[in-house]
Nucleic acid binder design. Sequence first.
DNA 1: AAAGATACATATAAATCTTATGCATTTGAA
DNA 2: TTCAAATGCATAAGATTTATATGTATCTTT
Lengths: 111, 111
Amino acid sequence: MPSTELLKGTLKTVVLKLLSVHGKMYGYEITQLVKELTKDKLILTEGALYPALHALEAEGAVITETVFVGKRIRKYYSLTKTGKGLMKEKVNEFTDFVSTMRLLLNLKPSV
Amino acid sequence: MPSTELLKGTLKTVVLKLLSVHGKMYGYEITQLVKELTKDKLILTEGALYPALHALEAEGAVITETVFVGKRIRKYYSLTKTGKGLMKEKVNEFTDFVSTMRLLLNLKPSV
DNA sequence: AAAGATACATATAAATCTTATGCATTTGAA
DNA sequence: TTCAAATGCATAAGATTTATATGTATCTTT
């Protein structure tokens, strides 16, 4: 189910980006949006997502807000100022990494 | 030194690609070429590279040829037919992954 | 009534990489 | 000429990150 092991190192980047665009989301909602936007090509597992969200909270990148919908709990996450900065950093880092990879993977036979 | 933790999952892809372009390389040579081509933005550590090369050999993706240069040993690696196929697979996989990530990271405020 | 979706969470295992070493030869600079 | 840096291989231990497997509970739909 886990799409690709290339996700490693990009989970937080994805989460931060979605929060920056949506303003406020809860865990399950994030998994569904990623599934939808990527047409099932990227599946976030709960076992990876929740620990990542908790880590972001511990880092001060997000703050939470607990809401009850009926009797069921829902934990909304939103970016702090720190989180917005981190998001930009991470997105740039990923973009740079892809550029660097292109230098290698776009080589034509006989460097 | 390790440039970025985004390398995770792409080390073998890079190695296979360089071997496909150069035909035949040894470990140290690979680290130096990557350093040069990426202007130090990507540094392959030996602790990661050698195990990866050994794994590729065990998978039948590469074959080795040991040569002595003076008294010093040198192990050349080159792609097998399997390795060429694997290279293409991995490069495509990476390209697809980047496209998928773009769907998420290029979102404009308010999806 | 039961299955499937919603919603949270954690523990264990697996994978991958970094850091730290270790050994030996060769080259270049002081 | 001597000593550091570069060349060249390799492995072990630790860190990080993710997947898999569970567990609990509510809500919706058939």
